[in-house]
């Protein structure tokens, strides 16, 4: 079966539409076109080092980390319960968890917009109890809520898949040796589930740190994240060079977080990245 040539159209396609475009991004981030040709410059990376932009980067990372942490806090017990014994119709429950993930994420975000706005459902319900309308929308909490809502299944599913593969006899052995349920969890179940936790963290953190839609719709443009900054450079400002430099920064950010996670994964032998 030595017929490699049938993959050549694909290879050519990917070189044109994946490799070359990424090289162009890197190219635009360090080269300016002037009258006397092309000049190499680090000006755009220097511009990024200004406090205004560093603040945006830090805000993106902090909001993404908060969302990831909340997802872990809420999601771990869910995965634990679903993987536990005595849960009837397990597959249906898992499917129920996956379905919202397949709904267009714009619509999921939009759904919260209708709930949180000034005369939305939540404020209407509050008014029945005589509470004045609150400013729920266009706050950093709204952005975090949107992230948690959108990415929670990405945390639950990898943890669930690792937990359900744990050898039950290991847990029984611990119980036979006199460990109580708290000990069993902290000494056996949690350490064994760490690979799932790690890939869950990666799968929530990465889309959260790169989003521009959630922050635009639920943050109302007041909470500029690095994604919004990139979006603006290309759609309104038209500064390709700076936008490209920002994209390179974002790719490096993703690469670093992925490197940290895979390293951890390897230490624990076994990966659960879907």
């Amino acid at each position: 079966m030595k017929r490699n040539w049938i993959s050549y159209p694909y290879i050519i396609w990917m070189i044109i539409f994946i490799v070359v475009p990424l090289l162009l991004v890197v190219f635009y981030s360090v080269i300016v076109v002037t009258e006397d040709g092309l000049t190499f410059t680090l000006e755009f990376y220097k511009r990024f080092m200004q406090p205004v932009y560093i603040k945006v980067l830090i805000r993106s990372i902090v909001l993404a980390l908060i969302s990831t942490f909340i997802c872990l806090l809420i999601g771990y017990p869910v995965a634990l319960i679903l993987a536990g014994k005595g849960v009837s119709r397990k597959n249906t429950l898992i499917l129920l968890f996956v379905i919202p993930m397949w709904m267009n994420f714009l619509l999921r975000t939009y759904a919260w917009l209708t709930l949180l706005e000034k005369n939305g459902l939540i404020n209407t319900m509050l008014s029945w109890f005589g509470i004045k309308p609150l400013n729920l929308l266009y706050t950093s909490e709204a952005v975090v809520l949107g992230m948690v809502y959108n990415f929670l299944p990405f945390m639950v599913l990898p943890i669930y898949s690792v937990l359900s593969k744990i050898d039950k006899s290991v847990i029984e052995a611990a119980e036979d040796l006199g460990a109580n349920s708290y000990k069993v969890f902290t000494k056996i179940i949690f350490p064994l589930s760490l690979p799932g936790v790690m890939s869950g963290i990666t799968m929530v953190f990465m889309p959260a740190v790169t989003t521009f839609v959630i922050s635009r719709l639920l943050g109302g443009g007041q909470f500029t994240l690095i994604g919004n900054l990139i979006d603006r450079q290309f759609t309104t400002v038209g500064d390709w060079n700076f936008g490209s430099a920002l994209s390179v920064v974002m790719m490096i950010l993703i690469l670093i977080s992925m490197a940290i996670m895979t390293r951890y994964d390897k230490d624990r032998e076994g990966s659960a990245l879907l």
Binding site: P21, L22, T210, G227, I230, D231, S244, S247, M250, M251
Partner: peptide
């Protein structure tokens, strides 16, 4: 990230 794929294709 999708946004990077998107803008890189747009540049191309």
């Amino acid at each position: 990230p999708d946004i990077v794929t998107g803008i890189s294709l747009m540049i191309l």
